[in-house]
Write a protein that binds this DNA or RNA. Structure first.
Lengths: 208, 208
DNA sequence: TGCAATATCCCTTTTTTCAGGGATAATCAG
DNA sequence: CTGATTATCCCTGAAAAAAGGGATATTGCA
């Protein structure tokens, strides 16, 4: 009997998914874990026909889980089911080899459709999410690609350090920090530190 | 027959709540809306024994919904059920007269217990949420109370406007904006704009 | 009514950021 | 190897914010 693994820390959501699958895809046997850690352990002893994956997990992000799981088991079918509608999260999820991405606000029909498609080896992206990816009308502005150093500096800026303080902490010159700062402003098309930090936080580049 | 109103935009969550109540509290009839707006409309024609309320709604926050609903119907029983575990949100919810606050990560037993308690006129706060309120170990730092004007200025600062630009927009002097800015730095105990904005965004004072 | 909180306006000095350059190693992928 | 990217360092001048005062209306609540 094929097995479905639900990785989700909200009981009401996982219960609902379990019921839904029981009712509509009775040939699938549902298993349930609440953490990424437990999920990886489960995978060591079981073969999953499909994994239903939340992106917000208590111990690590669903993206990380997906990356690790796929590195161990090449042919996993992973369907992300989450309430996150941010471009960069979807991008990361797809880059991590996730096969489907739907929202918790999807109706049950769409969820079942996604489960079927993903189990059959296809990709399934929620239409509202697909719009995001296409850069439709008011889609989020593209996020710039930052270097490691730039991310490092950005975080320290957001923590309220001045150029000089950052320079001391990273053992570099304040001029260098200033260069990174200017590049950050340029890449984000930001006028000043305030909106730079706001954008960085809201877009998830800075974890809080 | 007493009625329960579920205000929740994620079908899988509302379905699950409906099933749970059907199974365990059969004397309650479940109704379901996905927006605060529809919820208020429903209340105009119906009497709810209890409202199960999500905090993240598409059209307004659950807090606002609670405030408006209570101003119209004094004796409503409102149970917030959400995944938000931030101090200031819980504080706001209680201030808005919400009778119970539980998390989506609660097990079904706790959810049912909360429903019963709230319907009977008691308060019910999830233990993990109660810990937050008690200022346990690593509780979030207290957030300062801001005036309306300060919030207004804070948002414009976070949008990258300079004091002068804010002054022009609000038809006040740049000196005044500077005063507000200094008060904000003081209230947040922030050293500069960067960490001020970061704190404001991560704590939810600035909606994104 | 009267006090407290809020909102407003004003000044100086110092620090920091912003905008405009330019330049040289190190690293890394094709 | 080579060229592109990254990280580093440097300069100037203007603009803005931070720190430090102080002062006067207005408003809302007790």
């Amino acid at each position: 009997m094929p097995k479905a693994l639900i990785v989700e820390d909200h009981p009401i959501v996982s219960d609902s998914l379990t019921n839904l699958i029981h009712a509509s895809v009775p040939e699938l046997e549902c298993y349930h874990v609440t953490t990424a850690h437990d999920g990886l352990a489960w995978l060591n002893g079981n073969k999953a026909a499909i994994i239903l994956l939340d992106i917000n997990l208590p111990d690590m992000s669903g993206i990380e889980f997906g990356t690790i799981a796929r590195s161990r088991f090449r042919d996993l079918k992973i369907l992300a089911i989450t309430s996150i509608e941010q471009r960069h999260v979807v991008d990361q999820a797809l880059a991590a080899g996730i096969n489907g991405y739907i929202l918790k606000s999807s109706d049950t029909g769409e969820i079942l459709e996604a489960v079927h498609q993903v189990m059959n080896g296809n990709k399934f992206i929620s239409t509202s999410v697909a719009d995001l990816l296409k850069g439709k009308p008011n889609a989020n502005a593209e996020l710039p690609v930052l270097t490691r150093r730039e991310v490092e500096v950005l975080k320290l800026i957001a923590d309220g350090l001045t150029n000089q303080e950052i320079a001391d902490k990273l053992f570099i010159s304040a001029w260098t920090v200033d260069s990174h700062r200017k590049n950050l402003l340029l890449k984000f098309n930001a006028k000043n530190t305030a909106i730079l930090v706001k954008t960085a936080v809201t877009s998830g580049i800075i974890s809080f």
